[in-house]
Amino acid sequence: MKRALLASCAVALLGAAGCDSYHYYDMSLVLGSTFTTALVGEAQLCKVNISGADSHEFNLTNCGVNSNDSNIPDVGTFEFATFADSGTLTFTVDAYNGITPTPNCLYGSGMTSQPASSQITQMGTITLQVTGTGCPNSGQ
């Protein structure tokens, strides 16, 4: 009787605390066909925004492009870790041709949505397309 009570308390405690587990989203960043070599060279900063089932924000210096542009158009993969296992995760990447991510320096963007599930690792692709001219003088 006493053991059963203790066990039920432990289960209740675990249920109240909740058990989290990591889920990983490995997203490939690809520069679309609208990105010419000259425009790729202007990339100073990419801002990654995650919304929906989880929310987060981080920056990619030079949008992940190498100094010798050797990794274009497939820039590379970034991994996002979350406890979310339901709903939808929306990944938005904004490319700026200035050091500071001001709206007038925004010149490219890409977005994709990924269903959150109990799967440990999911993969996706975000393709960036040019959306504007960005800052008049890049590098500001």
């Binding site: 993969t77 970034f78 870790a81 406890f83």
Partner: peptide, 11 residues
Amino acid sequence: NSSFIACAGQG
């Protein structure tokens, strides 16, 4: 992963 350009999020 060392080949990734970034890792972000929880933890």
